[in-house]
Every structure is written in structure tokens, then in C-alpha cells.
Design a protein around this nucleic acid. Structure first.
Lengths: 276, 276
DNA sequence: TCTTTATTTAGTATTTTTTACGAAATGCTT
DNA sequence: AAGCATTTCGTAAAAAATACTAAATAAAGA
């Protein structure tokens, strides 16, 4: 489903030729293959320069950004679909991905001509084959993903030509509903910081104490005492010292740590045992 | 949508008459009005006799039970739909209801004749108007509800003729997928016991310490020290003593308490403040 | 009426966890 | 070698969770 070419326009003309439109429409997924009225959104979190980032994309000339999204094939599970969509966008495997909420309020459904105006001047009325995707009320299942910033090379696709890592504390204008999704995703990872491997998935293999502490501070939005922070993680045996150090210039070089994955996931999964 | 008559059969005959079938089909919601491929399930929790209960329903002669469910009108939000479905079943207002997870794995879709066999010998092939509801792959948004046991009078409807409060520790045979939903709902309320008004919604207005403690013990599945339990709740100012007592015979009569709703919701909502 | 019984309630002691903070060690720069 | 910013080690106090002793109470039975 990843199409390297951007949503095409021959030149600066406002309309596409019928021939080109036909070609495009052939690439669009058919209503027969996908669950109608159902969408999946991925809130992809990365961490860089002590800031928590969200992957946003947009169609070049449009002002509003949106979150990576896609649809569910009739023959695939929703988790599977979310993973497929994520891989299409980020090109990485082994990504932490978790469903957190489904949104489905009713909004005013835009008319064909409003949509055409927004969708880079596609001719109105919207051709039938594309209309199920853009001109309907959708229920959206949202997932959040935690990725290692440096490993991601976002890919554009049919509906996008630009991408950016937006700072969560300074989001750009997003299309209707998407901002709320980011907010809820953030609330979720904040709550789940204690029992999901949030840090493990956002950080590179080796990192300093102050790097992981800054991550925790960003997510929790409060300062933590560095001395107690180390003490806690070390006493939980979550971290393991390496014999490497990072040169940060001007100061003492901090030791690089890595996760003790076993102890980490064990500590996290120490949720209550079930009745069953 | 609540239909007082049960899914009708003229007598003990295996098939319904064409005339009756026509009448039934008229009552079935049209595909035009509802989001297709999308369902909502409610896991309704009640608490009675120191046991946590789940509301289950079934079609009389079928062996398997299922959870209250319904569909989303094209012109209503999903939360609104869930609430409507819940009210239809329980007849109560002011119920705590919260979305917790969406399920959407692909299962083998039963054939018309298998369905007919299961659906109390409806004639196969399933009439077109009903088929969208029973013969498709569904994505199911699940909500859990907390109700005050004594105030609920479950209602049957078109697809059910029996109901029961099943003990969560001893669930009956449920249709495919429903057991997992109950398990996940339980995991959820266990986790959320600290920051959602779980107790408030499951208990009657006035209750004894040992009653609320037994509720917590059931949900958490472990014994709590009664002396420390009181101490904690009282120190949080969540409980307020009334001057009534409950006569339980043979022993000292325990004081009835009620919730200090203000302090309770305040204590619960003391979640971290948001970045935004 | 007095004793027995099972349970509720009050209070204290102990342990564990969290939070607070002083100060030395380190690596880099000048 | 001195200055510096940060890391790292260590202890101390405060708070919370847990454990336990024992008294108070209401109902039932002798």
C-alpha cells in the first residue's frame, strides 16, 4: 500500500486529467476489501533531544497535519491491521504497539465539494471508488507506538507527501479529532509508564541515566531527584551498567547503561494475577 | 428496540411460518441505519452476596450465553450507543459506563446453515435483512458498566429471552470471544479500582465496612487486613459514618457507612495533571 | 441475667518505601 | 593545575504500608 509517488498533480493545475484520475483510482483500496466506516490511527512516539515527539504527516499544500492512519482489511484482525499500517509508515519491525482507545463521535460530514477543496482540488463529485474512504462517518481505533527515534525513516504514501516529528508540547494544527487522540495517547503512556516497557522502546540500546531520567520527566511532566531515580532503577535491577561512557564535553562523562530486559519486563508484568 | 415478546416460535415446530418471519424481519434494524461490521458489547457488573456478577443473556433453548450487545446508529456516537444499549437492557439511568477495549480478530465466519442451526432453527439461507447482523465479521467495542445490583431489572429483547447474573468466578459457557471480554473487563476494573469510582457504583448507598471490603477482596482477589482497610479509607475521608447499624444477628452490629462523594471523586481524580 | 460467640473497632508497633539532602568523584576545559 | 558542571555515593528523615494486640459490641443460648 505504500506508494512512493506523491498524490499526483501534473503541474500547478487545479484538476487532474481524467486519465490520471483513472490510474489513481485503480490504486485506491476497494470498498470490497476493507471494513467500511472503520479506521485505524497510530500515534507514533519518538524521543529526541529530551523531547517527546509525535509523527505527523500531511499532503503537501494543505495546512493541517494528521496522524498516520489506514483501514482494516476484511480478512485481517485489527491489531494486525494496525501493525501493517505502522510498518508501512515507519519501515521498522519489532515495534511496540498497543491499542488504547476507540473514538467515534459523530461529526458533521463534509460535502463532496468541501472535501474536494481540501483534498488538493480533486474534482467534485468525488469518484465513487474513493468516496467510501473520505466521505463517510468513521469510527477510529487508536494505537500508540513507541519507536526508537533514530531508527525510523518515515515513508510517505498515497495520501501524504510530507512528514515531521512534532514536539508533543507544541503540536501543529491537526485535522479534527487528531489532537484529542494525541492527548489521550499521552495520558495513557503516562499512566502505563509503570507497567509497560515505555522506556525500553523509546530509548536506544545504550543511554545515560540523565537521558532516561529526562524521558521520564517529559512523560510525567515533573522534575525527579536524580539521586533517587538511579537508586530506584538500580535496586529494581532494571538497568545494567556497561563499561562505556558518553563524552558530553565540559563535564564528567556519564556511564552508559542498558536495560536488563528480563528484569525489566518481569518487574512490569508483575501485575496482579488473574482470578482465572 | 426493546421488544417484550421473545424471539418467537409458534409452538415446538422447528421453523417459523413465512408470515411470522416477515413480521419479525420488519422489526429488525435496517442496514441503512446502522454502522455495518461494528458492534458494541457491555459487560455489566453487579455485586451481591459478596460475589461479583456479570449480566448474561441467552436465547432460551440455546446452551451458550452471551453479553448484552447492540449496534451503532449512523447518527449517534459510540458512547451514546453504548449507553442506549445499556439502558435498553437494565432500564436504569445514571449508570457508570466506560469503554475499555475494542476486539476485532478474524474468526471463521459461520455459514448460513450453521447459523440457522444455532439461531433456533431459523430457515437457511438467512433472510437478507437480518444477515448483516448475524453473518458478518464484526469489530466489537467493549464497555464495562457498574450497576447497583438491587436496582436492576434486566429486560429481554429480540435476541434474548433469558437473563442471569453469573458469578465471575464461575462463568457459564459463553459464545466465542465473550469470555475473553469478561476477563479483560475484570483486569481493567482491577487496575482502575484506584482511580475510578468502582466501589461507589457497585454498592448501595449504605453499606458496612465488611461489605465494601469484601468487594475489594473479590476484585483484587486477595485478603485484606480489615483493621488496616478501615484505617485507610477513613484517613482518606472517603467514608462517612451514619448513625444506623445493620443487624446481622449473632454478632456485634456493624455501623452503616456511606460514601463522601466529594472526597471520593476528588481522591480518585487526583491523577497527574496534563501537559496541556 | 450471665456467658459465649463472632465480629467490629481502637490503638500501637514494626517494616518498608519514598523523599530529602550533603558531599565526594569525575572528566573536560582553560 | 584550577575551575566547573554534572554524575555518583551515601545517609537521614518522613511517610506509607503492614503486622499484630486487645478491647468493645450485639445477639444467642443457657
Amino acid at each position: 500500500m505504500v506508494i512512493e509517488k506523491r498524490f499526483m498533480k501534473t503541474s500547478k493545475s487545479m484538476l487532474i486529467s481524467k486519465k490520471e484520475l483513472k490510474k489513481i483510482v485503480q490504486l485506491i483500496p476497494s470498498e470490497d476489501d476493507y471494513m467500511c466506516g472503520l479506521a485505524i490511527n497510530c500515534i507514533v512516539f519518538g524521543y529526541h533531544n529530551k523531547q517527546l515527539k509525535v509523527l505527523c504527516i500531511r499532503q503537501e499544500e494543505l495546512t493541517k497535519w494528521y496522524l498516520p492512519s489506514g483501514h482494516v482489511r476484511k480478512d485481517e484482525g485489527i491489531n494486525q491491521a494496525a501493525y501493517r499500517i505502522l510498518v508501512e509508515r515507519t519501515g521498522v519491525n519489532n515495534v511496540f504497539l498497543k491499542q488504547f482507545q476507540t473514538f467515534g463521535d459523530v461529526h458533521r460530514i463534509p460535502t463532496d465539494s468541501e472535501l474536494a477543496a481540501e483534498l488538493d482540488k480533486l474534482p467534485a463529485p468525488i469518484p465513487e471508488k474513493i468516496s467510501w474512504m473520505v466521505n463517510k462517518r468513521f469510527v477510529t481505533i487508536c494505537y500508540y507506538a513507541l519507536v526508537e527515534f533514530s531508527k525510523i525513516i518515515p515513508r510517505i504514501d498515497f495520501f501524504s507527501s510530507e512528514w515531521t516529528w512534532a514536539d508533543v508540547q507544541n503540536l501543529p494544527q491537526l485535522i479534527s479529532g487528531n489532537q484529542q487522540m494525541v492527548v489521550e495517547a499521552l495520558r495513557t503512556i503516562r499512566r502505563e509508564l509503570q507497567y509497560e516497557p515505555i522506556g525500553l522502546n523509546l530509548l536506544p540500546q545504550k543511554f545515560t541515566i540523565s537521558e532516561i531520567q529526562a524521558l521520564y520527566e517529559t512523560i510525567l511532566n515533573k522534575k525527579l531527584d536524580n539521586r533517587n531515580f538511579v537508586k530506584k532503577l538500580v535496586s529494581m535491577k532494571i538497568l545494567r551498567k556497561t563499561d562505556e561512557k558518553r563524552r558530553i564535553g565540559g563535564h564528567r562523562s556519564p556511564t552508559l547503561y542498558k536495560f536488563n530486559k528480563q528484569a525489566y519486563t518481569k518487574a512490569l508484568k508483575q501485575e496482579f494475577e488473574m482470578i482465572f
